[in-house]
């Protein structure tokens, strides 16, 4: 579905007079291969290059070196530009800065309008997308009167209405409160499981990645760790070096293991933790 081949992205830093100060390599030799229907999480601290990487999947940025393929189409091939943007939808961080319409349903219709979908079908798509994210009852509302989580769900509906095969979530929860975060993650998981849409979730909240099929951890522009959530979260100390943490339960299990209890690595949930302790007790 998505593939990067030795992807490098550099940008030139300039001082106030416009002289070149230096070159920053934001993405450094990244090779990814995401299969259709997968739920991928990309972790990394602020400034690790994860958002820059994400913008390549939607042809918002182009590689300095290497190549990016979306469903077999090279992003640098201009003739496929609009196909790529339709197939790989994007949800951004700030909910206010990606809603264009003044009424929820009009915003959801914005993508299909741009694609030239006939009016009747736009209405069908809008209704179906709002239903998918559970925002149908707000279709006539002004986005300014919604909570952060609701606004993000409207943004997600706006992407679904374009019938994408893949959605890239670029830190969709960074500006939300815990309730809003849950709403968005729930919506993302549902899209993956029910609609079989490929999901790329970029985040630095550890609790959000435990449901992913695979996790990539980025640092200084390259992929530092790859694996299932369990494999990644077994390496508590390594994650800390990369300015990241692990969910509290995982950390607790890790600490207890260090203190001598025979617990496995990478305990992800509370249920699992209690079960493991029960096993030891017996």
């Amino acid at each position: 579905m998505l593939r990067t081949d030795k992807l490098v992205f550099e940008y030139i830093r300039r001082d106030e007079e416009g002289n070149v100060e230096g070159i920053t390599r934001a993405v450094d030799n990244v090779n990814l291969d995401v299969k259709p229907g997968e739920f991928i999480a990309i972790l990394g601290h602020n400034g690790s290059g994860k958002s820059t990487l994400a913008k390549h999947f939607n042809a918002l940025l182009y590689p300095t070196e290497g190549e990016v393929f979306v469903d077999g189409m090279n992003t640098e091939d201009d003739s496929h530009l609009w196909d790529i943007r339709q197939e790989a939808g994007m949800v951004f961080q700030n909910p206010d800065n990606q809603i264009i319409g003044q009424v929820v349903e009009e915003d959801v219709g914005f993508g299909p309008e741009n694609m030239g979908v006939p009016t009747q079908e736009i209405w069908e798509r809008v209704e179906e997308s709002l239903k998918t994210v559970g925002m149908l009852q707000f279709r006539k509302s002004s986005p300014n009167h919604l909570s952060g989580g609701q606004k993000q769900r409207v943004s997600i509906a706006g992407v679904i209405a374009m019938h994408p095969k893949c959605i890239i979530f670029d830190e969709p929860t960074a500006m939300l409160d815990p309730n809003g975060r849950k709403e968005v993650i729930r919506a993302a998981r549902a899209l993956n499981q029910v609609e079989n849409i490929t999901i790329i979730l970029i985040t630095h909240y550890m609790e959000e990645v435990i449901y992913a099929d695979r996790v990539f951890v980025m640092d200084k522009g390259h992929v530092e760790m790859t694996g299932t959530p369990r494999e990644i979260f077994s390496q508590v100390d390594r994650l800390k070096e990369l300015r990241l943490g692990v969910p509290q339960v995982t950390l607790l299990a890790h600490e207890l293991k260090k203190a001598g209890l025979p617990l496995p690595d990478g305990v992800l949930t509370r249920e699992e933790f209690v079960e493991e302790l029960k096993k030891i007790k017996r």
């Binding site: 815990p178 309730n179 509290q248 339960v249 607790l252 509370r270 933790f273 209690v274 302790l277 029960k278």
Partner: peptide, 20 residues
């Protein structure tokens, strides 16, 4: 009210219920 206690609170509660 849409808030949660820290995860450890839940863990301890569940352990307590499990007889620890």
């Amino acid at each position: 009210i849409g808030l949660a206690a820290p995860q450890v609170t839940y863990v301890m509660q569940e352990l307590h219920e499990a007889g620890f």
